[in-house]
């Protein structure tokens, strides 16, 4: 079980701020593919991965990073702070 969080327009497209997902996926990419199979809203949100960043356990990582028992994973657009 992993807590999946979404922020900004990714959150809006998915429709929830977070959800608990039961998954056997080994990498971030596998999890994304698994989510895309679920419902069209995921397919839409994840259609352009170059516009999405990912963090595992609150640290930025890549799409080929292994989940390795991660507690939480977050998907969001490039940051615009400052």
């Amino acid at each position: 079980m992993i807590k999946v969080l979404y922020f900004a327009w990714v959150r809006e497209r998915i429709g929830v701020p977070y959800e608990i997902v039961e998954t056997q996926s080994g990498t971030v990419m596998e999890l994304v593919e698994e989510l895309k199979q679920k419902e069209p809203r995921y397919e839409i949100a994840f259609s352009d991965l170059s516009a999405i960043k990912v963090a595992i356990n609150q640290e930025l990582c890549e799409f080929d990073t292994k989940l390795n028992g991660a507690i939480e994973i977050a998907f969001f657009p490039p940051m615009t702070g400052g």
Partner: peptide, 22 residues
């Protein structure tokens, strides 16, 4: 802070809103 701290700016106008693009 601008591109690595997890903040996202949304601009709200009378016509709606848009997320600020990086």
């Amino acid at each position: 802070l601008k591109s690595r701290a997890p903040f996202w700016k949304k601009e709200v106008t009378k016509d709606g809103y848009q997320w600020v693009k990086s």
